[in-house]
Simulated scan of single mutants.
Amino acid sequence: MIRVLLAEDQAMVRGAIATLLGLEPDIEVVDQVCDGPSAVSTALELRPDLCLLDIEMPGGSGLDAAGTLHAKLPETRILVFTVFDRPGHLRRALAAGASGFIGKNRPVEELAAAIRQVMAGETVMDPALAATALRAAPNPLTPREREVLAAAIDGSPIPHIATRVHLSEKTVRNYLSSAIQKTDCANRFEAAHTARDNGWL
């Protein structure tokens, strides 16, 4: 029996996936959580065979959780699933230790098959997305630039961004300026959305 921990922030989607996977004869969803930190703490407690992680979750993305889980529970396999087929997300998922990356638009039979493949030691990903990721430019942003851009994406003014990321306003401006140059954008809002659309945030 493959013991799966499911992390997905939308309750209806989470419940549906858990129910459908529960119909598989060799898969058991041992718990369901709604955010990244809970995925990490619950996995450390239950030590599932595989963690199925959504990317966009409150309190920390599935990619952040994947990196932590890979470091703390290297024997637990990680499969990332998302509605966002972005090359940057695929690269980050693999760099974080994930063994697979699958879209939420796939049938549950394909998700179950991907779980079995990952547990068999294979790497699972959509071929078209993998090809796009290979052609795409690598993420040019530093971790700090990504953090500041993520805080700027909602249009917050510089003082609010500085408070949120615990940096001075001058330092925030410097990071934003650098990020704007690297993304070849006209302003911080455009840079933040470009970074998000490429899966760099």
Rank of each mutant, 00 (worst) to 15 (best):
I115G: 00
T142C: 09
A133T: 02
P138K: 09
V124N: 01
P143N: 13
S99W: 05
A131M: 10
A114D: 06
A133P: 05
G121K: 11
V108S: 07
M125V: 10
A128F: 04
T142F: 11
R116D: 05
S99P: 02
G100Q: 01
A113R: 13
L141E: 06
R144V: 09
D126P: 01
A114M: 11
V124C: 01
K104C: 11
A136L: 08
A128Y: 02
E122W: 07
A136K: 06
V108C: 12
G103F: 05
A98G: 08
A120N: 14
R135F: 06
M125L: 14
L129Q: 03
A113V: 11
A133Q: 05
A133W: 01
F101Y: 15
V118C: 10
P140G: 12
V118M: 07
P127L: 09
N105T: 13
T142G: 10
A113S: 15
D126Q: 11
R116W: 08
G103K: 00
A95N: 14
Q117H: 14
V118P: 00
T142P: 02
N105P: 02
P107K: 11
V118W: 01
P127M: 09
A131W: 03
R144G: 00
A137Y: 01
E110H: 13
E109T: 15
A96R: 04
L111D: 06
L111Y: 06
E109N: 14
L111R: 00
R135D: 09
A130V: 03
G100I: 04
A96C: 14
A95I: 10
A136F: 01
A128T: 01
F101N: 00
T142K: 10
A137E: 15
D126V: 03
E110G: 06
N139M: 06
M119Q: 15
V124H: 01
G103P: 00
M119H: 07
V124E: 01
